[in-house]
């Protein structure tokens, strides 16, 4: 179980008085499937980075199975089984797809990494020896990023907008993968997404806006609620 307790985050050195995350309280149960959604700039990626240890909270605590992991480094959290697929993955000169996958598998069983390439719709033969550099297209890079998190032995996996930049066919494949994960129930999955098909898999949907958690509930009726809740939308409709 992962618990975030009154987490706030104000980037260091930022003069901006407004924190990016404010008083976040969140309880994520083992092997559940969560979807985080909300407007651009609302703080979704920042929340994911807080979980991974990339951002250190200004205040608040993070507990994993009741143990305080607030001060653990990225590496230590990774070794505890927390994983994060970046919204915008970095590129590396000279590091091959095969190498990246073997690193994400902890250097064991290199061959198995390619199954995951196949799952995200990339032919291992064509991609294993490619470098993860500027020559990859945006969608290819993104799919490799997803494959690398799928290939890890995680207990908590966070995917940051896995659908972004991905073509229709690959997106269908991807939702199939997430469906299987959701049915297997052997990993806590957190997907930041704007896609209805992904919402449908969620045990709970978490709405993040303006740095706060605005709601966390089962998916039924979630969409209508969100739409009606949005004041600006109502205003617009009234004006029409």
């Amino acid at each position: 179980m992962l618990e975030l307790k009154s987490i706030s985050y104000l980037p260091e050195g930022e003069k901006k008085a407004e924190p990016i995350l404010r008083d976040i309280n969140l309880l994520l149960e083992d092997n559940h499937f969560y979807v985080i959604t909300g407007p651009n700039g609302g703080g979704k990626s920042s929340l994911a980075k807080i979980i991974m240890g990339i951002y250190r909270p200004t205040s608040g605590k993070i507990l994993l199975d009741g143990n305080d992991i607030t001060d653990l480094s990225i590496t230590e959290r990774a070794r505890l089984g927390i994983g994060y697929a970046f919204q915008q993955p970095p590129r590396f000169k000279g590091i091959t797809v095969e190498k990246l996958l073997s690193l994400s598998r902890g250097n064991k069983c290199v061959g198995a990494g390619c199954n995951y390439l196949f799952e995200v719709g990339l032919c291992p033969k064509d991609y294993e020896q490619r470098e993860v550099n500027a020559s990859l297209s945006g969608g290819e890079l993104k799919r490799i990023e997803i494959a690398s998190l799928l290939s890890r032995d995680c207990r908590i996996a966070v995917f940051d907008e896995p659908e972004a930049g991905i073509d229709l066919w690959s997106f269908n494949r991807l939702t199939d993968i997430f469906e299987k994960i959701q049915q297997r129930k052997d990993v806590t999955t957190i997907i930041i997404s704007h896609q209805e098909r992904i919402f449908k898999l969620a045990d709970e949907i978490i709405l993040v806006a303006e740095g706060r958690i605005q709601g966390k509930e089962a998916q039924e009726g979630f969409l209508e609620k969100v739409i009606n809740k949005c004041d600006c939308r109502k205003e617009c409709q009234e004006r029409v």
């Binding site: 590496t75 990774a78 970046f86 590396f92 000279g94 902890g106």
Partner: peptide, 29 residues
Amino acid sequence: IAGEQLIKLMTLGLSEKEAEETILQGFMK
């Protein structure tokens, strides 16, 4: 070395030092 690259490799469980070596090794390959 780009900070993002180090962070990415650390999220795979590498220490900062290991991440740095991996990046240099690839770069010089």
